[in-house]
């Protein structure tokens, strides 16, 4: 038990939690925005995966990780655009569209990575952790907060900015209206379709950044299905946040801590648990937390419902 407590306050554990939380924060805040505007994105995983792929593609071609990150956002937005076409323009079923996009992104990235990279692909231009001068030398806080990849700082900033926009600007209010009462939004002369489009594309970009953060700041390469279900964890996370961007940061850190713990249980022989069972830990925990939170918040009233002008 002592060793567990020691672990929780250890620099390495907390730093690792921060790292693992980054893709969840990015994708989670994006999904909050999209759901606030009434669009459910089961295809979040696919957007992340596509972002991972296009980021590597661009970083490989240009040798510039920043262009790679940008391309990751574009990749995510491209998948979001397909979703928008299906569910906003054509009012198709949001869940089925999302499932198709997950399948399609997995198939397409697997196929294209093989066609383009063959088997010889190695590390691409990527992000190393940024050591912020002076601050990164602080004990504990230094390595935990001030020696992370640029995505970490971007994720925190994006969550704050999106939170501000959502709750404090007219633009954000129209997002909320599009998810709560699209008819009312329409009656004041604002296009529901256009409002939902912007929210969805923001979500696509954020998910794409999330995917890029995995490929460019963690693994430096593209591997088939490399997002490995993080998009689904992010989906559950959104419900627990009760659709608040800043909460996504805290909840993502919580899930990431579970993830980091499950990896460490094996690595440090903390308990005689077979590895499959320790890998279950984050999944079970997500399920339990989701279970407690499911009834606590109320989803946007028009979430998942297509809207057309009467």
């Amino acid at each position: 038990m002592d060793s567990l407590i020691e672990l929780f306050i250890s620099t390495a554990f907390v730093a690792s939690t921060m790292r693992l939380a980054v893709p969840l924060i990015l994708a989670g805040t994006g999904e909050v925005i999209s759901e606030r505007a009434g669009i459910l994105n089961i295809g979040l995983e696919g957007m992340m995966l596509m972002g991972s792929f296009t980021a590597v593609l661009a970083a490989d071609a240009t040798g510039d990780p920043w262009l790679g990150a940008l391309a990751g956002a574009v990749g995510g937005m491209a998948v979001a655009a397909v979703h928008g076409g299906i569910v906003i323009v054509w009012s198709g079923d949001q869940i089925v569209s999302g499932l198709a996009l997950n399948l399609g992104a997995l198939g397409l990235t697997t196929y294209l990575s093989r066609r383009i990279f063959g088997t010889g692909q190695s590390e691409v231009a990527h992000f190393e952790p940024i050591d912020i001068p002076l601050l990164s030398d602080l004990p504990f806080l230094g390595p935990v907060l001030f020696a992370q990849s640029p995505f970490f700082y971007f994720a925190l900033a994006a969550a704050a900015v999106l939170s501000f926009v959502l709750f404090r600007t007219r633009f954000g209010l129209s997002w909320q209206a599009a998810g709560e009462d699209p008819d009312a939004l329409d009656s004041v002369g604002i296009s529901v379709g256009r409002t939902r489009w912007t929210a969805l594309l923001v979500c696509g970009a954020m998910a794409g950044f999330g995917g890029a953060s995995i490929s460019l700041a963690q693994l430096f390469t593209f591997i088939e299905n490399m997002t490995g279900g993080q998009g689904f964890i992010a989906l559950a996370l959104v419900i627990v946040t009760r659709w608040r961007p800043m909460w996504a940061v805290g909840i993502a850190l919580f899930f990431a801590a579970a993830d980091a713990l499950s990896l460490r249980i094996q690595a440090l022989d903390l308990a005689a648990i077979p590895f499959q069972l320790s890998l279950m830990l984050p999944l079970v925990l997500t399920l339990v937390v989701y279970g407690f939170a499911a009834r606590a918040g109320r989803p946007p009233a028009a979430l998942g419902r297509p809207w057309t002008k009467a």
Partner: peptide, 15 residues
């Protein structure tokens, strides 16, 4: 599979 499902959603969409 993905293309077929996506097309099917379109084909059965409200619009």
């Amino acid at each position: 599979q993905a293309i077929i499902v996506a097309l099917l959603v379109l084909a059965r969409s409200d619009r």
